[in-house]
Simulated scan of single mutants.
Amino acid sequence: MGDAETDGPAAVEPDAPQAQRPQAPSRRPRSAWLVSVLAAVLIAGGLAAVWLLRPPMTEASAPPPSPTRSATAAPRPTPTPTPTPTGFAANTAAYDVAALPQVNVFAVVPGLPVDDAAFTTPLPEQAVALGSGAPIWADPTAQPVAYLPHEFAYDGTAVPVVEEQEHWVRVLLTGRQAVPSQGNPAQVTGWLRKGDVQLAPSDASVVVSISARTIDIVRAGVAERIATDFGWGQDGTPTPLGRSFIMTTRVVPEYGYTRGYPIVYLSVQSPTLDGFGGADAAVVAFHYHDARSGPISNGCLRVDPTAITKLSELPLGTPVIVNP
């Protein structure tokens, strides 16, 4: 047969060999698949075994929990409380003390109040006026009625404190509200501004008992008995009861009955005598006397040499309380 061209599509020649069809991919044997599955199971089981067989985690080895940030507000600063003023309000006004009556042993000042707590022990403190003197009030909400001098010839300027406030102190004073024939001559008191005085501790007091016939000097609550018998005022001229203080201590040679021992004068005066011995005052005192037992005096307290010596050693302003 030659190389002649044909007019149509070439016809299949029956005697030529047929072309091979592509083969489908071969399937994996079932046994191999089972092996893979078993291997995976064994690996997973091994991991589980490792997890189950690991040592338990103790509290110390446990990882700390992550801190949780709280929304707590910052603490507010505690405000400092403002102290509440106690007692009478402060008074900073200026006063001319020279225009006020002076409080001294001879003074009679109707505006001064009489002591209203006669048997109450004063505070362990005394006051002395600064400058030339300190104004005195009967009522701190009103105007001053007198002044306490810084110095006076017969003393009486160191005065015991009987009440203390933030701005004020109330003190015992010399002088009288009235003479006995015209009113109440008992122990007087007054208010002083703290800024006008110097305060100092007072560590002693004198306690007298007329009924027990005893006199004690008390220091820090400890009593020293200095007399077990003494003289006091007669019925017509009684010794004033209640609290007062040592005004001045001095030797008066003219009074022969004292035998040269000191006289310890008190701030309080006779409840029945306007004056005594020609003076415009009738001051009660401790002093020595040969006759010194029972109600025999004009109001003074008559003691022996030992007692008057100890009393004369006490500082001015020392409180004295005379009990019935």
Rank of each mutant, 00 (worst) to 15 (best):
D115I: 05
V97M: 11
G260C: 09
A282P: 00
N298F: 06
G190R: 01
V218W: 06
G175L: 08
A32R: 13
A62G: 04
V264L: 06
R21K: 07
S26W: 02
V207L: 15
F152H: 13
K194S: 10
V320T: 01
R225F: 02
S244M: 14
Q234P: 01
G87K: 02
L47K: 01
Q18N: 12
S211F: 05
T80C: 02
M57W: 02
G233Q: 10
R176V: 13
T86I: 03
F88Q: 04
A220R: 10
A142D: 09
H150F: 09
G231C: 08
P113V: 06
Y255M: 14
V109L: 15
V162W: 00
G156M: 14
T58P: 10
P17G: 09
V303E: 01
P238C: 11
P262R: 06
G294T: 05
I210K: 13
L123H: 01
H289C: 02
D229M: 05
G275F: 10
P140H: 10
Q165V: 11
R225V: 01
R21F: 07
A153F: 09
E254P: 00
D235F: 03
G46P: 00
T84G: 06
R225G: 00
N323M: 08
D3I: 07
A24N: 12
N298Q: 11
L52P: 00
G278D: 03
A223Y: 11
A178N: 07
T120H: 09
A200K: 13
R30P: 15
S209V: 05
R170L: 11
S202I: 11
L52G: 00
P180S: 09
P324E: 13
T272G: 06
A10R: 12
H287P: 01
P25D: 11
A127R: 03
L192T: 00
P253E: 09
G111K: 05
Y154P: 00
G278K: 05
P79T: 02
V179P: 00
L52M: 14
T237F: 13
R193E: 08
R170P: 01
S297K: 03
